[in-house]
Amino acid sequence: MYLGERLPKPFARNSEGRSSVPTPEENALLGWPAMSETTPDTEARRLATEARDRVRFEEDALALADQVYRVARHLVGSREEAEDLMQEAYARAFRSWRSFRPGTNLRAWLLRILTNLNIDRGRRLQRTPGLEPLEEGDYFLYNRLEESSPDAPDEERVVERLSQDSVVSALSAVPHDFRDVVVLVDIGDFSYADAAQILDIPIGTVMSRLHRGRRVLKQQLAQEAVGAA
């Protein structure tokens, strides 16, 4: 789309190629007060640049929507909630696009808005009760799956014992605080540092929640797969 066509043209030039708006020199001759540094022409250019930057921002943000949604979908309990949250987050992002610093991680910026909105909704109040990770090592899911099958399979076949549905339900059983971090790092592929920024928590907290969250996830998976926990 050619932006110029859709922008207002307040400073159209006349047939002699002269602006219909007086130049600063003409203003001085006419004895009019000089306008500050912003002449109408530079103002028009500024507006055009801003419109172009905004359009680019909006296009970049929309291009990331699929990836943002994949994460958002598992930060909340249902598809409907995820869709509402996406719309709220995008509306806010489009309104406050000027506060995004170009060259930084736009996907993380969008998810920061989205998680803040999610927290504002009071979702934190409805915490999943009770699920604390087992004080067992990180190898325990593998050990359980291996124990429960008679002919000691290789690592890949062990994973195949889990079903897609069991993973989805196991993930949704992880308490919110742990799950947010697991979803950002394991599904969103964010670094610890990005996850810390998105959730506005220290990096050490990201690491401990991730650790505990993954353990709860494995605990759930073990339960689904072999009924052991």
Binding site: R70, V159, L162, V168, D186
Partner: peptide, 13 residues
Amino acid sequence: LRRFVRQAVVEEM
């Protein structure tokens, strides 16, 4: 397991 989890939970918009 991680790859499996990542793929299993994908739900398209």
